[in-house]
């Protein structure tokens, strides 16, 4: 705008100053307790540690170890695989539920449904993970139930203390985080578009594929990222139900920090993991953005 008057500019500056001063307490907090510590982790990942003393310096040894030692490679690739699988399972299972609540539940009852879906999320995470151990164990609910009705002759052992248990438990833990963004995206869809599609002779399935699904994509993308990124760093689930074959990279980071006293290596592992996760998320966003644009 060329003819912005001086008064308008002054008022805009006043607004900026007020906004800044108001946002400064939470901003300072985030800078001091989030940005600074995260930067510190990056710096420390280039240091070395000898028993309890950290030695400042610059070495790429930690990264070399993080990327080349077989134990770290195994954990990292397993973590990525588990996170991808958990994300896929969670989002695919969540979509129909979000669709049902958005399209088949009466408007005045939607809030109640969302409340119902979020309740399990608000109960103790530790206890939920532990209860999956009760359900999936050798003498667990599932095995005794299946034995009782005669479906199996001896308890299934592939359920607990391995990667399967980690995937089931995480898919359960992250369910509401996948359902809510998809639900919000579905709610935004203008219903008259669907009627138009029907009127123009499209079948219900084709309407879903060509109208509903593309318009719901922002929600699906959000759900994928919200589930995928934190799942990589989950520590409780693998340590409670994963057994030795279900340990993930977060467990190794914890061990390096708290038990082996090798903070630089732990930091390098954490930075490597976050870089890979960040790169995958950016790639995913680029891919879906192009896909979304192609749909319009």
């Amino acid at each position: 705008m060329a003819d912005t008057s001086a008064g308008e500019r002054a008022s805009r500056r006043r607004e900026a100053v007020r906004g800044f001063s108001l946002v400064s307490p939470p901003l300072l907090y985030a800078l001091l307790l989030l940005a600074a510590p995260l930067s510190a982790v990056v710096v420390i990942s280039f240091w070395t540690q000898d028993y309890l003393t950290l030695t400042p310096g610059f070495t790429l040894d930690n990264y070399e170890q993080a990327l080349t030692r077989p134990v770290f490679q195994t954990l990292l690739s397993r973590s990525l695989g588990v996170a991808l699988l958990v994300t896929a399972v969670t989002v695919v299972l969540a979509f129909p539920v979000a669709y049902y609540v958005s399209f088949h539940v009466r408007p005045e009852r939607k809030a109640l449904w969302i409340f119902l879906i979020t309740i399990p999320f608000w109960t103790s995470y530790l206890l939920r993970v532990f209860l999956w151990r009760v359900i999936l164990g050798y003498n667990g609910v599932l095995n005794t139930g299946l034995l009782g009705i005669g479906v199996i002759d001896e308890p299934l052992t592939f359920l607990l203390y391995n990667v399967n248990a980690v995937i089931i438990t995480l898919a359960h833990a992250w369910a509401p985080f996948a359902i809510l963004p998809i639900f919000v995206a579905l709610e935004k869809i203008d219903r008259s578009l669907l009627e138009a599609s029907h009127d123009l002779g499209e079948s219900r399935v084709r309407t879903f594929l060509r109208v509903t699904l593309p318009l719901a994509m922002p929600g699906v993308v959000a759900a994928v990222l919200i589930v995928f990124i934190p799942t990589i760093g989950d520590y409780v689930t693998p340590s409670l139900v994963g057994g030795s074959s279900g340990q993930l990279i977060a467990n190794m980071i914890q061990v390096q920090f708290l038990r082996l006293n090798n903070a630089p290596l732990g930091a390098a592992l954490a930075v490597t993991t976050m870089l890979i996760v960040g790169a995958m998320s950016v790639l995913f966003l680029l891919f879906t953005r192009r896909y979304l644009r192609g749909q319009q």
């Binding site: 939470p26 901003l27 985030a30 510590p37 995260l38 510190a40 977060a250 914890q254």
Partner: peptide
């Protein structure tokens, strides 16, 4: 930046605070 902890794995937050 303020909303970042929402998507950051908790172990990263915990670990970086512990180091500092």
């Amino acid at each position: 930046l303020i909303m970042l902890p929402l998507v950051l794995p908790e172990i990263i937050v915990a670990m970086s605070l512990l180091v500092v």
